[in-house]
Design a protein around this nucleic acid. Structure first.
Lengths: 353, 353
DNA sequence: CTGAAAGCGCTAACAA
DNA sequence: TTGTTAGCGCTTTCAG
């Protein structure tokens, strides 16, 4: 016999018992064993008892791959991270990943993390879908015009975005971008700031758009006009935030700007670095407000004031929604999670000049 | 027919053709098709040509799960992250993850990231192994006495550690902990420091031990005695670094300590925060040196001086070694990658007092 | 309530 | 060089 016909006879790993073997030991068929293990109500309670007990005794473990083949599923999820200039090494995505992977693991799902690097946005998706390597896909950073969406719809694989899409019948989960930035701008206004610059995100992304709208909302709420000289392009990277400030130092030094609303924390951090290098104190001379609430904002001194998204929760939620779709739920889910301002320490009232 | 018997007839995804169908179309057996696709030299070149062409034409895609079942493999790797107090959200692990996942993906492997959270160290491993959910396991943070190792050896599943183990016949990849810290201490000495405190890592870990030895080496090289008052316990977390400084503020303020060698960057960052809160300037009043070289060290002002490990490369390397073991290589690999000091900006000579 | 049997799609002896 | 034949281990009709 290749399998342990007495419990504990062999190592608890080597060639662990198969369902067929277990069935024989129990004196039942594979089918019944399979049902009992799956909790199928059609098996007689005593039978189930017995089978469960034997399974335990023989330390039976279902073979995931075989089961997956028979059920036409993979139990793995494709998790796509943003393409350049952002990277998977963005701290935002780590906290997010933790939420996602935790939820998936609880449900027995694996994660496939393709590295989009060289490939285009769509090749990766085609590859995942065509080889049936995943049961569903989680994406980030929807674009204003997003070719991935048509492809995914055609593929028939369930998918969810982190971030709201333009497309109305796509499921997504997002933080309150527009409202959050608006709140942020108003908070700066409440401190007395009137010359508030914004550093935009990467062009073409829905989130960039929404955050810019939030900025405009905030200005409006303060009774301020939009001044295009205070709208600085960025790309969501630290380098981008740094550059934005460097390029507009004269405005800052000239007192044209007393506060900066960065579209994310990483750019806020870059901005602060540029300000430091220019000898400008934060927040004494310039206030800086970020968006996202990533942990590393707390590494700074003073800690970064920021509009905090529930990053970890976003991860959990987006995973949960995808699992729902995989389980057969049909309706598209679009959920906005609330945000809030934290760490009011890198912002103060404008310097008197 | 359920499959597209004319190329392009259906969507490129829906029910893509199976190998059996492709074989029929080609007029060959499944076996030959399988061989041709696998590049088996036994098939006649023209036959291979034909089959490859037809595969292309019918857009054939191998079914990963079925293939895995037949070959008794899963094509997924279990990636275990540290347990509390460290978390997967430690920036170190993100950079590391990027290296690992990139290498694995190139070879078509998925990643299973269990959340050890509640479970003990060993339960997770048992669960991965027993269900044959993975072809190999990557672990971190070997302990001086590590019960996982016996378990893994018994399980017969290939595994590799990030970090050197005490056990001589276990494969691992590591940065040069001891040499790196020693270098760091010497660098501080070269700046004129003589009262150099160390913040230790989490107790029981091999890396903690090695780094402490490196500290002692460094002192010895400087002709200094080990002073246990300057050996502060820590745990590799930011909070740990913060606490270590808070608890020893009197020593610092009393001039007993002019430089701090933290066993990792996160603790260095925590230490700097505590110093800031106490109104002590870094590096003017106290120099702080970290270890790891994580990206977020650059977020600080001034950027953190640190002993940089090639974190991303460590990830790639550890994955590569594991893939080697899975491919059947027998000999254990133990590789130390070099480190170097970067960003000499949070360290200067001691303040004259 | 239980069992027999037919797959899931691919791989790998073993023959031819 | 190619085909035949068994599986891999589990799920799921379809009968009984």
């Amino acid at each position: 016999m290749a399998y342990p016909n007495r419990p504990g006879k062999n190592s608890k790993f080597k060639g662990s018992i198969t369902m067929a073997e277990l069935a024989k030991e129990c004196g039942y068929s594979k089918a019944t064993v399979s049902r009992a293990l799956a909790g199928d109500p059609r098996v007689k309670p005593e039978t189930r008892e017995l089978i469960l007990e034997m399974a335990e005794r023989f330390n039976y473990r279902p073979h995931a791959v075989a089961s997956n083949l028979a059920r036409r599923r993979t139990k793995t999820i494709g998790l796509l991270f943003p393409s350049a200039p952002r990277t998977i090494a963005d701290p935002f995505f780590l906290e997010y990943l933790q939420g996602v992977s935790e939820t998936l693991f609880e449900q027995g799902f694996s994660l496939l993390i393709p590295q989009a690097r060289q490939q285009g946005l769509t090749e990766t998706i085609e590859e995942l879908v065509a080889h049936r390597r995943v049961d569903g896909i989680i994406l980030t950073e929807p674009r204003l015009e997003d070719e991935r969406i048509a492809l995914l719809k055609e593929s028939n694989v369930p998918f969810v975005f982190l971030g709201s899409t333009v497309d109305p019948d796509v499921s997504w989960v997002d933080g309150d971008n527009r409202g959050g930035i608006c709140q942020g701008v108003q908070a700066l206004g409440a401190l007395g700031h009137r010359r508030i610059a914004v550093i935009l995100g990467e062009e073409g992304l829905v989130s960039t758009e929404k955050r810019f709208l939030g900025y405009q909302d905030g200005l409006a709420a303060l009774g301020l006009e939009l001044d295009w000289n205070l709208v600085w392009p960025g790309d969501f990277t630290r380098q981008g935030g740094y550059q934005a400030v460097v390029r507009h130092l004269d405005q800052i030094e000239g007192g044209e700007v007393t506060a900066i609303m960065a579209s994310n924390d990483l750019m806020a951090i870059g901005a602060i670095q540029a300000l430091h290098e220019a000898g400008l104190g934060v927040p004494q001379e310039v206030s800086v407000l970020g968006f996202d609430g990533i942990e590393v904002g707390n590494f700074l001194w003073p800690p970064l004031t920021t509009v905090q998204q529930p990053v970890y929760l976003l991860g959990r939620e987006v995973a949960r929604v995808l699992l729902g779709l995989i389980a057969g739920e049909k309706e598209t889910v679009q959920r906005i999670l609330p945000v809030r301002i934290v760490n009011a320490q890198s912002t103060v009232g404008p310097a008197p000049c």
